[in-house]
Amino acid sequence: MNGELTTIAIILGIIHQGIRLATPYLFAALGETFSQRSGVLNLGVEGIMLMGAFFSFYVASETGNLWLALLAAIIIGVLMGLFMAVVSITFQAEQGISGIGLYLFGLGMSSLLFKTMIGSVTGITGFSELQFCVTDSFCLADIPVLGEIFFSHSILTYGAFLLVPISVWLLKRTTWGLKVRSVGQNPEAADSVGVSVNRARYAAVILGSALAGIAGASLSISLLNVFQENMINGIGFIAVALVYFGGWSPVGVMFGALLFSTISALQLWGQVLGLNISSNISVMLPYILTIVALAIPFRRAAQPAALTKPFSRGEN
């Protein structure tokens, strides 16, 4: 079957889709990496993504300006992050739980706002796939193999992957990154040398949440171009899991996101090609393989020592 589809075309298709599908996971998981590196587990990513998806979609459908829409997603991400930070850092709340609270708040609010402000599912024109045309007749996307894989994605997909080296640089090469890592590893020591633990954590959580907002937007105004209640459907939680998977390093997170998305693409292709597997089993595949991949002892996770541990000077 599928006589015209060569094996190469299928492999290219899987890689191309793996890259595209990784976009929301990558934004959210990289943001979560900052947050966790500073010692704060933000389980509310899903809720922030929903709010980001809604606000960017709303602004896009009202103004037609996608950049403004993206900005709206960032702003709401920052606000949600601030909320999370106040609860989890200043009020030292149990982080796993405050995250669930934030998720429910985001889920409820985004659905409520959708009902009152939009009312029914509609489509918009979102970020389209770039072609990188050098001349009128020649586009980078036309290059065989490479063009298809690398040069026909939406700008947000490139942004997501560009964020990987930026994150590495931020965490490893800047003073700010050093502060973030130190407050996540040993807040008492960082405090004793004059680093403001809570300020560094606020910054990391808010940055992470802004990225989660973009992750939501990448779905509603780039990949799907619709908004629907509860449309994130667990991507945010998987993004949190990917941070553990990636061993708290941006590059590891990227590989985790790619692995997960590629296996998802693989199972979709498995179904389309009519392989004789029950759809339920193929849907399970990404989850099973992720667990298996985790159990392979190739790398020991370097969990930030103070993760989920609130800091208060002199009291602990």
């Binding site: 106040v86 609860v87 009020f91 030292q92 709340a93 149990e94 609270g101 934030l102 429910l104 889920l107």
Partner: peptide, 25 residues
């Protein structure tokens, strides 16, 4: 009232309740 409002309120309750642990401590 849309049911999702309850969801949002439950979320807020959780956030506020876990925040009070701090005051308790």
């Amino acid at each position: 009232v849309p049911q999702v409002l309850t969801v949002a309120i439950v979320g807020l309750i959780i956030l506020f309740v876990v925040s009070t642990d701090y005051l308790v401590r």
